[in-house]
Amino acid sequence: MRPILECQKLTKKYGNFFALSNVDLSLERGKIVGLLGPNGSGKTTLIKLANGLLTPTEGHIMINGLEPGPATKKIVSYLPDHSFFNGHMKVKHLMAYYADFYRNFSTERALKMLDALEIDKDKRLNALSKGAQEKVQLVLVMSRDADLYILDEPIGGVDPAARDYILRTILSNYSENSTVLISTHLITDIEQVLDHVIFLQNGQISLNTSVDEIRTEYGKSVDALFREVFKC
């Protein structure tokens, strides 16, 4: 089976600054992958390139063997690190919007999650608290039967109790053939769910290994290794 995400000599420059430099990467299916690195290491750039929001300066990025485009966007469910909905829309209208454009969106699943989180579907998005808005976004993204979920800081703005719910949501909503790529700084919170980690440093991959290997080879947790590698 072809990798769900593949990068070949992927480079992205902003002026003279290399946000990503010659990145070679291949992500297998059925894994929860942590994309970890300090601020400015290129995590969000890589994620944006995978979603076709940026054009590579050099190299290629492929999703299921295809360059980012309408066909790959059908199978990728993306959560950016900030609000990306029209705040004037009601939650129920956002659900209708997703159902209109994504064939793999399950309204039933979204309703179930919104009810569990006690979010009023008749409210406008900007009438909800910041945490509730983030939950709505995550619910809609995770209510798709996607092959690749790309979550950029999914738990950054919510309280610890909601974090547990979100992590449970991620775990319970992806199938064995799906891959979840999570970028976050809150490693301790997500370490328990990760199968694989990628460390990005100055636009290059400094580590690409499984969580089990980190524990056996380095005798450390992912969080401890991260603190050691990226020590200031």
């Binding site: 979603n51 929001l53 485009g69 309408p70 966007k73 059908k74 950016p80 990306f84 454009f101």
Partner: peptide
């Protein structure tokens, strides 16, 4: 703007 993150990840082309 921020809404572009949703628009550009819909399964439609830039030309559409």
């Amino acid at each position: 703007s921020r809404e572009g993150y949703l628009s550009w990840t819909l399964p439609v082309s830039g030309i559409q």
